[in-house]
């Protein structure tokens, strides 16, 4: 009798979080930047040896004379990006979020944010979008960046968000940070009456029992969980807040100010991200409600396969559904 070892799950470095059969768009950031560059000669692209992994290679192929490879040198990447902006161009500079936030913070802060330069930082692998463990998982990038004056922080949900955000990031005066979703990126928001507006949160669906406040890929999960909860006769509203800073407190707190259960959903640590942003906005407006945070725990996360990890840390649709049902019972 032969025994077959069960096949182990593997952790792909650049794992796609698109569900099987889901509608996707390929490299939406790279294509959007290339299109923008067709219209605006000031657009340039820089990367720190991660062009292929941040979809910057699409731009580089279409505008090779406007692409600058800075090598695996993130401090140089952002110092140089400041130099481009100081001399009248509009740089988009890409690397992984961990390197932008942790390794090159001083350069972003003093060379870019303090003089309020139009440099657009593109951070790959935000939150838990890689199974490579803490060296690559930017679980606290928003917490790090929220304290930086002048910096606009955007956490897009899908390809539509990214495509529409790119020209708006270039048009906004100061520096921006985009939490990139790359490769085959799901397209979800085209099914809703929605368009990305920098600095604005949007109500994607209404519901009488629960309010989801979400950003990034967790909005995709929030919409799926809302459908799943409907089967349990729970009616869920979803408010998508892709701009974390400046936060659209007026729209979001207005939605939260009700008798419904409030749940925040973010692909980020529960420390220093959307949950705490909302909590501060509520306190400032004297709005009181129970808020359940769905997000990453305040710890260094495991390595492993993304579906396993999303389940483990409560980001999967099933986990969200269970958390909400339990929250409604208490």
């Amino acid at each position: 009798m032969s025994t077959t070892k069960p096949r182990l799950k593997t952790s792909a470095m650049i794992a796609s979080f698109a569900d099987p059969g889901q509608k996707t768009s390929s490299a939406p950031f790279g294509h959007a930047l290339a299109r923008l560059a067709d219209e605006d000669p000031r657009i340039v692209g820089l990367t720190a040896d991660l062009g292929k992994y941040t979809d910057m290679h699409i731009f580089a192929q279409q505008h090779p004379e406007r692409f600058f490879q800075m090598g695996m040198a993130e401090q140089l990447l952002f110092g140089a990006a400041a130099g481009f902006a100081e001399t009248g161009l509009i740089p988009f500079a890409s690397t992984y979020s961990v390197f932008a936030a942790r390794r090159a913070y001083d350069f972003l802060c003093l060379d870019i944010a303090e003089p309020n330069l139009n440099v657009n930082v593109i951070g790959g692998l935000p939150g838990l979008t890689t199974g490579y463990g803490p060296s690559h998982q930017a679980t606290e990038d928003i917490a790090i960046f929220r304290g930086m004056p002048n910096l606009t922080i955007v956490d897009p949900c899908d390809s539509l968000d990214i495509e529409q955000a790119v020209p708006q990031l270039a048009a906004s005066e100061g520096p921006t940070y985009l939490r990139l979703l790359r490769g085959k990126v799901p397209t979800v928001l085209d099914e809703y009456d929605y368009s990305f507006e920098l600095g604005k949160a949007k109500v994607l669906r209404t519901g009488r029992d629960v309010v989801f406040v979400s950003s990034g890929l967790m909005t995709m999960r929030a919409l799926e969980a809302a459908k799943s909860l409907a089967e349990h006769h729970v009616n869920v509203a979803v408010v998508h807040s892709p701009t974390i800073k400046p936060f659209d407190a007026e729209t979001v707190v207005n939605e939260v100010d009700s008798n419904r259960l409030v749940v925040t959903l973010e692909n980020h640590s529960v420390v220093g991200g959307l949950y705490e942003t909302l909590a501060a906005a509520m306190v400032a407006r004297q709005v009181s409600a129970k808020v359940i945070p769905i997000g990453l725990p305040d710890q260094f996360l495991d390595a492993g396969a993304l579906p396993t990890l999303h389940d483990r840390y409560g980001l999967s649709v099933d986990a969200i559904t269970a958390t909400v049902l339990a929250g409604l019972e208490n």
């Binding site: 406007r66 600058f68 140089l76 952002f78 140089a80 400041a82 130099g83 481009f84 009248g88 350069f107």
Partner: peptide, 17 residues
């Protein structure tokens, strides 16, 4: 340690233009 990194970007940018 910042100045030379910015100088590299400025020099690249000016030449590009």
């Amino acid at each position: 340690g910042h100045g030379l990194t910015i100088a590299v970007g400025m020099a690249l940018s000016l030449r590009h233009q």
